[in-house]
Structure formats: C-alpha cells, structure tokens
Design a protein around this nucleic acid. Structure first.
Lengths: 139, 139
DNA sequence: AAGAGTTGGTATCTTCTGGTAAGTAGTTAC
DNA sequence: GTAACTACTTACCAGAAGATACCAACTCTT
C-alpha cells in the first residue's frame, strides 16, 4: 500500500500546481523565471522589440552564450518571439508576446524594487557586519 | 543650487542605480532576488513567521545547506529576522521585516503567475518542439 | 583586392554553484 | 547506552555558469 500512496501523492501534486512542491512543473517554471538574465532580458524588452546586439549592449555583462541561452529558453516558453529578417547582414528581432508582457510588469517591479531599496539593504548589511564583528569579539 | 523636486531626486537615483549595469550594487541585489529559493522562502514567510524545520517541510526539495544559506543572506540584507529561543531543543523563528514584506508581494506575484500560466507555457513548449521537429525534417 | 567592421551567433575552457550525504552539539527520553 | 530532536555544518563532486576565442557571410573602406 505504501507504494500506491506515494505514487498517488505525486500525481496529486502534479495536478495541484503548487510551486512549493519539488518536481512540479510550476516549480520548474519558477526556477526559470528566477534568473538574473531572464529578469533583465524581459525588462529590456518591456518597452519594445530589440535586436540581439542591442540587448547585448543594453544588458551590460551578459555573455553571448548566456544571452542566446536565455533568449532561446524564453522563446520556447512562449514569452518572447524571434523574428529573422534575411537581410545583409541578417537581422534578428526579439519581442515580448502577450504572455511575456503579462510577466514583464512583475519582473520590472522586482527590478525597480531592487533599485529603490538598495540603500536600505546596504544599511542592513552594515548593521549585520557590525553585529557579527561584535559577536566574534565577545565570543 | 536650484531646489530639486522629489521627482528629480528619484530620477537621479534611478540613473545612478541602474540594474542593467554590471557591477552596480543594484545589479547584485537583483541577482540575489532572482533566486528560486529566495522566492520560495519569502513566499513561505509571507503569511507569518515560521521555524527552520517548518520551512524545510513547506519548501519541498530544499537542502539544509541551501535553506541556511538563503536565510542567512536574506537576514544579512534585512529582508527577514532570525530569533533564537534557547529552549531545549533550540528553537529558531524566521520572520519577514517590513522591508521583506514590501518585497513579498512582488515575489509571490511571480510565483502566482507561474502557477496561473504554466499551462500556456506548456502549450508554447509543445508548439516549439513541433516546429523544431518540422525544421529538422525539412532541413 | 586586402583588410576592417557588422551581425548573430558557436566552441571551448575554467570557475563556481548547488545537491547529496554524512557529521556535529547539546539535551532529554527510553 | 543509545536513539531522537533541532538546527545546522562540512566534504565531495557533477553540472551549470561565465569568459574568451572563434566563425560565416556580407559590406564598406582604402
């Protein structure tokens, strides 16, 4: 009976779509979304389509490998579309789909939160370091 | 020196802390927030304080190493607080700070988005796979 | 006609991160 | 004496991320 119960629990978990459950497709999707490059790419595309090298310039520090990898994954998941114009040289435009635009608001909100609250976080870090130093001295 | 409006000061701050710039503190903070375990921990704490083993149970699949690492990082950044009760056995409670609560809404929104749109993403993936297969056959 | 520049990427190598599994401390119950 | 409980810590290793070099096709410059 134990085997059946475990299998049933797994099956129920898949149906429930709970991001807290390991192996749940939603958990995997959250993993994909929780990515620095994903946030930046989606934020960069949130005010209109951009070309590959345009994104490379906008998102400082992204390597071509990670940019391609991220763009491919997001295209696969229907969050952005890739349009190739066979001009010379070839031109590739990336644009958010409606699904992607519905996500963009959330991810740019997180990015904006980071920009707004960085000072508070910085202050908290200094308090933490100071506390750590005192604890090390005392202990 | 002309008086600067709040809007102007905000604009300056936004330019100074641009998450798109590599090495910028905001970029680093976004990197920290763009983490699967961070999203899940903050979401799990969004409806009240929880203990370590409570979080471990709630967030299926998290290893003690990553849970501790994530909690420490978030405590350091002032997003949650850690309260040790020296009972036997010892008891540790984690709770979101006001700063953490202001973030929780955003991160749970992303989590909820994942739960809501997983089917659309799944459908997009199947379309992508089918297109890929056709392209491989044609080419 | 040779060389530089542009675009949108691969290929390769190194570094680093995260999962697994085991161990630790301090106490208490059996 | 040993097992259990809580909240971790540590060692190890596969795999992912990141830096860097390179590529093909074409145009523009000299």
């Amino acid at each position: 009976m134990a085997t059946t119960t475990a299998a049933q629990r797994r099956e129920e978990a898949r149906v429930a779509y709970d991001a807290f459950l390991r192996g749940c497709p939603t958990n995997q999707l959250l993993d994909r979304l929780s990515d620095k490059w994903v946030s930046l790419v989606v934020a960069a595309l949130s005010d209109g389509p951009r070309r590959y090298s345009d994104l490379r310039r906008k998102i400082a520090g992204v390597s071509p490998k990670m940019l391609t990898q991220t763009l491919r994954a997001l295209e696969r998941d229907g969050i952005l579309s890739r349009a190739v114009t066979p001009s010379v040289p070839v031109r590739v435009d990336y644009e958010l789909t409606p699904l992607g635009r519905s996500l963009a608001g959330l991810l740019t909100a997180v990015k904006d939160w980071a920009e707004e609250h960085i000072e508070e976080v910085h202050a908290a870090r200094e308090r933490y370091e100071a506390r750590e130093a005192r604890a090390a001295q005392a202990g």
